[in-house]
């Protein structure tokens, strides 16, 4: 498993890079604050009638697609843009590793970082368990779904990061890209489409939506189609990243 050891070395380095800059801590703090604020204040966690059921699902996980819209591109923007700006890409890609190993290694590092951020939201879970008796199975599948969704966003950010050496440009483009994947399943947008589009078109559009696919997880259903959707967005995006990196080098 030579490949694996290359990926591991790169992942380790990238994770180190996150934690040697303030970005990681800022990110985690913002994420946790947002989660707390939206869950308990905006999400109506304490609304009368909610607490007995003590469900996390809506007040907490409903916001994730929107948090990720800004937070994940912020995590992913530096992945390749920084390598290109500093020139280390020339070192990395002339090492005896395949571009795939580099791409996967970097992606994994950021994905693990997002996993850590998610894990650190555990006080929310403790709170609901203290206040009532929620279905922890549902919470777990929702977490898995949320992580997969973050992975899909992250892979999209990899593409935009590989396209430019400017992190800000990368950030903006990936927000727009991710926004498309959210809006495709956002009820107001669907209602708008229903006015004129044929039903088959709507179903194609909504099939690209992260919200639609995330919904199953939130209900505690681990549908293989949803899992496959997120995984294929990831694989496809990483593949696109490799194509972009190759074309860039070709000049």
């Amino acid at each position: 498993m030579n490949s694996w050891s290359h990926i591991k070395a790169i992942t380790k380095r990238e994770l180190g890079a996150y934690f040697s800059s303030p970005l990681a801590y800022v990110f985690i703090v913002i994420f946790l604050l947002l989660c707390g604020f939206f869950t308990f204040m905006v999400g109506g966690f304490f609304e009368p009638g909610r607490i007995p059921q003590a469900s996390l699902v809506h007040p907490f996980f409903d916001w994730h697609p929107w948090f990720y819209l800004f937070l994940v591109p912020a995590v992913g923007m530096r992945l390749w843009a920084e390598e290109r700006r500093v020139g280390t890409i020339e070192l990395l890609l002339t090492m005896p590793i395949t571009p795939w190993e580099a791409i996967v290694g970097k992606f994994l590092a950021s994905w693990l970082f997002l996993a850590l951020a998610l894990v650190l939201t555990f006080p929310v879970v403790l709170t609901v368990n203290y206040l009532g008796s929620p279905d922890n199975g549902v919470i777990l599948t929702a977490y898995v779904g949320s992580w997969l969704m973050a992975g899909a966003y992250l892979a999209l950010s990899c593409i935009t990061s590989a396209m430019t050496r400017n992190q800000v440009v990368s950030f903006i483009i990936s927000v727009v890209l991710c926004l498309f994947f959210i809006l495709a399943g956002f009820p107001p947008v669907i209602r708008l489409l229903e006015g004129w589009a044929a039903p088959w078109l709507i179903s194609i559009v909504t099939s690209f939506s992260v919200i639609t696919h995330f919904d199953g997880f939130q209900r505690g259903v681990l549908d293989s189609r949803d899992v496959i959707f997120f995984l294929s967005v990831i694989v496809f995006s990483l593949f696109t990243t490799s194509v972009i990196l190759r074309t860039h080098r070709a000049g």
């Binding site: 380095r13 890079a17 070192l91 005896p96």
Partner: peptide
């Protein structure tokens, strides 16, 4: 590439390490 050692122009290196 296993046989090659390479010092690119401008000596890039990971500045955060």
């Amino acid at each position: 590439r296993r046989l090659i050692g390479y010092l690119p122009e401008n000596a890039p290196a990971y500045t955060d390490m």
